[in-house]
Simulated assay, not measured.
Amino acid sequence: MTRVENAPLRRAARAGDRAHGRPALIGWAAVAALTAYGLAHVHWALGGSGFPFGAADANPEYSAFEHVGRDRLAPWMATGFLLSAAVAVLLALPGRRRVPTPVLLGATGLSVAAVLGAIADFRILGNLAYVFMLRFSAINWTVVNQVFAVVAVGLMTMSAVTYQRRTTGACTACGRTDSRADWTSRESAARWGRRAAYTAVAVPLVYASTRWAWALGYPLGISDKMWEEGKEDKLWLFGAALATMGALGSLLTLGLVQRWGEVFPRWIPGLRGRRVPLALAIVPASLVAVMVTTAGIMYIRLHFQGAFEDPAANWGATVPETIWPVWGAALAAATLAYYFRRRGACKHCGRGGPQAVAAEPAQDLDSNSSMRA
């Protein structure tokens, strides 16, 4: 395609930017968050109090930097966050950068991987469960900082997506181009979205089954020593309660491929028959996908570090968690498919309107209709 042919797409993308200010706002929010956090680490590197990671962690046994002190860790983290902030600036500025797009997107991916793989861990997910159980004592300064770091790189990721759309001529609001990708069609998304959703339901049930077995008196996958210790502290009942919450939450994933995930059921007063807002399904599912992925990565890391006592005898306590990244990836895919199926015409570029729907094969609509029935 020539530069002349690309010109209308570029003009459309620029018009979308002006009409849709949210992408730019998100980009500069990422810059602000990463810069602020980088400067906080500069403060800690210079001797300021309150450093939350490494040996100073409230629970250093969970940290990837358990034996690393503030004097060594804080400077490295300050450098990482400030460099990420610089990349975020390049992503947020209008127009195309001289730095190749793959380099900017790769740097974004590296920042996300560092935070999700080394800084964040299962405590974010665990504290969410505690909040639902009205137990707030476990929330500490380290967890607060983990959440802030995840939010910062999450904003950076959203800014990177916007940048990639803008520099390829796609609409910055919806990501559509004039050429329709088959895998994003309603029919295709319905097909691979179902597989992803069922996977996202099955994985947490594997974990829950061990906790339910313990609560019922069966020491599945744990040694006699651990079994007795858990009974004394009544951990198995508490663990079963958490597992049940997770299982019930996973069943909500079915809403991503069922009619009740698109239209409120009749038994919900005041909402019955109304369409479910996209954000009501997409935002919680996306957050859970991130949290279970970080939790699973932590368990995998601890296995490699040899942090667990007698892992062969106590596999039930730690192995099911190592497949949580599969849960997170499947849930993210199911959420994306849900978005592709339900998104309507873009208010900013006009793509995806009635003409686009009519252009899709008839079986696309049939598949979508039968799935909602």
Rank of each mutant, 00 (worst) to 15 (best):
V4Y: 03
E5Q: 15
A7T: 04
L9M: 12
R10I: 13
R11W: 04
G21Y: 00
G21C: 08
P23I: 12
P23T: 05
I26Q: 14
G27S: 07
V31F: 12
L34C: 05
L34H: 01
Y37I: 12
H41G: 03
W44I: 06
A55W: 03
V68W: 11
D71Y: 07
R72F: 11
L73F: 09
A85F: 08
A86N: 14
L105A: 03
A107D: 00
G109Y: 00
V112L: 10
V115S: 10
A118P: 02
L125G: 12
N127D: 12
L128P: 01
F136V: 11
S137W: 03
N140C: 06
V144W: 10
V150N: 01
A152I: 05
V153S: 00
G154P: 06
L155Y: 07
M158S: 08
T162A: 14
R166F: 14
R176E: 04
T177H: 13
A189S: 15
R195W: 15
A202T: 13
P204W: 09
A208F: 06
A213D: 01
A213K: 01
G217H: 04
Y218V: 14
P219V: 01
G221Y: 02
S223A: 03
D224K: 05
D224R: 08
D224T: 10
G230K: 02
E232S: 10
E232N: 10
L237R: 09
A240N: 09
A241N: 08
A241F: 04
G246E: 05
G249I: 03
G249C: 07
L252Y: 12
T253A: 15
G261M: 05
P269Q: 06
G270M: 02
L278D: 13
L280H: 12
I282Q: 12
I297C: 11
G306D: 14
F308I: 00
F308T: 05
P311K: 00
A312R: 05
A313L: 03
W315L: 07
P320I: 07
P320V: 10
E321R: 14
A329D: 03
A329T: 06
L331P: 03
A332L: 13
A333T: 02
A333I: 02
F340G: 02
K347N: 09
R351M: 13
G353R: 07
G353W: 11
A356H: 15
V357I: 08
A362L: 11
Q363N: 13
D364C: 06
N368M: 04
R372Y: 09
